[in-house]
Amino acid sequence: MTILSVADLTMRFGGLTAVNNVNFIAERGHITAIIGPNGAGKTTLFNCITGFYKPSDGSVTVAHGEKSLRLDKLPGHAIAKKGRVARTFQNIRLFGGMTALENLLVAQHNKLQASTGLGVLGILGLGGYRAAERQAMELAKHWLHLTDLYDRADDPAGALPYGAQRRLEIARAMCTDPVLLCLDEPAAGLNPRESSALNDLLLKIRDEGTSLLLIEHDMGVVMKISDHIVVLDHGQKIADGTPAQIRADPTVIAAYLGEGDDDDPDAPIAEPAR
């Protein structure tokens, strides 16, 4: 069953077409990876899906059971709230001056805020707020355990080591209770041991029922855990399939080795805007 379908997606910046007419589908319960050389348009595609860019053309649809929702029509914050699509960032964006635990509670803002009765009941300590907060704490603890950060819960996020920050960002995204988790280069800067721990974490997230979409450079991670791989080059999809198919695909190999390309293979195609 489909969780995310991207149809005819195009993103132009002035005369530069960063993503050109891309179509693909991510299956529910799968880990879908987007790979490609530098400048292939991966992050742009990713930003279109997660609402940080408004695509010039095409649609992004997320399926919730029977209903489906056009993500490209939603305002930025509603992607996580209504669309239930969470994301992490290539250059980690944690709330550095807040503790790990606080980071995870901020992620549950909408659920908690709804229980405070416009803030008034919360200030007075009435209503369902206490129960909601206890629940939020339980969820936060659950993810602290899974990401092996329980002992560092009261440390400021900015003081955590790099690998721990990556895991905390994933935990924070998971605390929004998403159906689809989008990860922008989750393995970047991790050592091999952390990288393999990350694989286990991602597989666990998948097995708990959240589908994943990830951009990754680390082929070790991609080939090991992905169920489905989409390959982008020069803003266009050049291949789409299982890891085994991708590994054997001659176009992919050519794109990565830069065969048949006279100029810089990393440059996206520039063409005049329509």
Partner: peptide, 29 residues
């Protein structure tokens, strides 16, 4: 002091820390 310990107060502080991350978490900035 009460608001600081509430979702709203935490959202304010999160906003001070990183507005883009707030948006990605579904907080209406």
């Amino acid at each position: 002091l009460r608001l600081r310990k509430q979702p709203l107060g935490r959202a304010w502080e999160a906003l001070r820390e990183d507005e883009i991350a707030c948006r990605s978490l579904g907080i209406n900035v």
